[in-house]
Simulated scan of single mutants.
Amino acid sequence: MNDMNELKKSVNDGRVEFVWIGLHDEWQWSSGEPALYLNWATGQLKGRDYCAVMKNGEWHDLPCNDRRPFICNNTNTGLVFINQTMNWRDAQRYCRQNHIDLVSVRNQDENQKVKKIISDNNSSGSFVWIGLFRDSWQWSDQSNTSFRYWKSGQPDNGDRGDEKYAVIELKAKGQWHDFSCTYHFPFVCHDVFVLHAVFDQENLTWSEALRYCTQNHVDLVSVHSEEMQRRVMNVVKRASTAAVWLGLHNYCIMNMWLWLSGETVCYQNWAPGNGTKPENCKLEKRKGAVQSGGDQRWISLPETHKLNFICSRY
């Protein structure tokens, strides 16, 4: 309620009725990406089943505790079909520990590739977990506060069942409603990104660092902008190794560097001679790190090097 009172004081000027806040009820990928492309089978999403499977290229929602085979995404080998039955959370944990994550399906082309690997490996024709899940009413910064301040009768999900996002009604004691994302309202931002530098324990390989971050925080850090690079630079000055792991990996066969989210590297801060395709993809698997000295440029290193690393908390 202290946060609510501060927010109301900052925006309640008598002219604004509703304000977007960062609470939403939505499907998202295990990697943290929003689900923009959807391919649900007819008749799905009428119940309260919160994890997704694929069958014949179409998606179904099933109880997350069902035991199904699943597909992991691996940066170096591509899609990996795991012919073991696990519930969705155990499948997610397995993929993160042994590969990268449960597979994301972000467009029709990726859907066809996942459909094909299921067809090639799943002769029984059973449902197969993908990385899509729904966690009701969570904050966009992934914080886990359970505070809610709904107006009486809210959330009601509307007549069309598409009210998945929360607003504050400033003229009703600041209580909350759910609305469709198609409405246009003012909104309130705040800066919640926190870096957690791991400098005080045994140095880890890139895969070990990734496992540590996903189990204890959110992920190895991605650096998408000059602002984020400045934050990283302030942190790595305290490192005990000459470089510090980032969430940056080389998808060698496509001659691409990617962040763990699957995003391509748009903002670039490579040291000279780095950021190019290795001459031999099989010779050594390369990952991205940031130098802890000098001008803190990015460098490419074999993933078996043991370094400090940085996790993102939100």
Rank of each mutant, 00 (worst) to 15 (best):
S300H: 07
K115M: 11
R211H: 05
D162K: 12
D200T: 14
H305T: 15
N234Q: 11
I310N: 05
D90M: 07
K285D: 13
H184F: 12
K173V: 10
M254R: 14
D120N: 09
T85C: 11
L102R: 01
W298F: 05
E163Y: 08
R238P: 00
N234G: 15
G32R: 05
L301G: 00
Y267N: 04
K173T: 13
S104F: 00
S136G: 08
D191H: 12
E110K: 11
G273W: 02
R134M: 14
L204T: 09
H177E: 06
R93I: 15
V223Q: 06
E58Q: 14
R67Q: 12
I118F: 09
H184E: 10
C72D: 03
T77C: 00
Y50W: 15
M54T: 04
D101L: 07
I130Q: 02
K9V: 07
N122L: 02
S30T: 02
R230L: 10
Y183L: 05
V128L: 03
N111D: 08
A41E: 11
V194T: 08
R106M: 12
G43I: 05
W137S: 00
D101M: 11
W40D: 03
T214A: 07
F179E: 08
C266F: 11
G158Q: 13
F309V: 00
D109S: 15
L62Y: 14
V221T: 10
V265Q: 07
A166P: 01
G125K: 04
Y94E: 07
Q108P: 11
T77N: 04
C64W: 06
K306A: 06
F179Q: 09
Q142W: 14
R68K: 15
W139P: 00
C51F: 03
P34W: 07
S123E: 13
V19T: 05
L45D: 04
G174E: 06
F147G: 03
F133A: 06
D178T: 03
E169H: 09
M233Q: 07
Y37S: 02
C181A: 11
L260H: 07
R160M: 09
N144L: 12
E26W: 13
L36W: 14
S152E: 10
Q154P: 00
K115S: 08
E226H: 09
R48F: 12
V53M: 02
Y251S: 09
Y149K: 04
M254G: 14
G288R: 01
R297Y: 12
P278C: 04
W29I: 00
A35Q: 14
A91P: 04
D159Y: 14
L45N: 10
T205W: 02
P302C: 06
S136V: 05
L79N: 05
